[in-house]
Amino acid sequence: MFELAVLDSALRMATPLILASLGGLFSERSGVVNIALEGILLTGAFASIVATYYTGNPWAGVFAGVFAGVLISLIHAIVSIVFKADQIVSGVAINLLAMGLTQFLTWIVWGSSANSPSVQGMAHWSLPEIWGPVARGVNVVISHYPPLVYVALILVAVSHVVLFRTPFGLRLRATGEHPEAVDTLGVSVHAMRFAGVLLSGAFAGLGGAFLALNTHQFVKNMSAGRGFIALAAMIFGKWSPGGALAACLLFGYAEAVQMGFQGQAVPTQFVQMIPYVLTMVALVGVIGRARPPAAIGKPY
């Protein structure tokens, strides 16, 4: 269970979760529940494959995934911030919308009801070998995983700095705790919450792009509950980037183990439950002590 291959695959499995839960973090810290992460992941995955399919450039796919994520989270922002609708209902609606829309568009674009054709995946980063032994050394580190794995890890650190070391982060956190206080200080609550929700769209969209480009194609409903697991990881990680990272790695590990177990004596259905059961166990065991932002879910 602790072979290098499993750990290796755990990090890959964790990457979309990390990105999506960072997204959830920004949204929830601003006071908006974002269970639409699932739908945003799916949308980002679809958009990235479409763009890669037409341009042949996976980086265009990455950009498209982020853009589509922002676009669909804009719906969530408008509905739940401007129109003060229930954030859970809005999130569920977006999840259903994303499921139907991506499947419909898969059929429109590729004439298939299930999946897209295979597209080019992302080239791993590497320095030219002719730069000598140093480049070769660096390459051992940076070309092992697809680039977005590294990007995700860097974004964890960046998110931490943004949230806890910048005025923007301070305002965002304050908005999620006590929006009236923020308002009386002349900071726009709506602007902060829009920023939070749109950032969550960008992050989850990026996660979706990784998910799809890593398998070189779009498959219907390929997010397969990862948005919800990312949400759980964010809560498990107590609404902090580092905590979310740790939780995602744990869930990624469970997924990797699950894949290792497949084809053995245990029925696959049971094995496939591992990540989800672990999610529930983790939440039951820890959530009691976690404290969500005080104003979360309350329209302002």
Partner: peptide, 10 residues
């Protein structure tokens, strides 16, 4: 109008 989880200075 104070945010409980932040410090006085924040």
């Amino acid at each position: 109008m104070l945010v409980d989880t932040l410090t006085v200075a924040e």
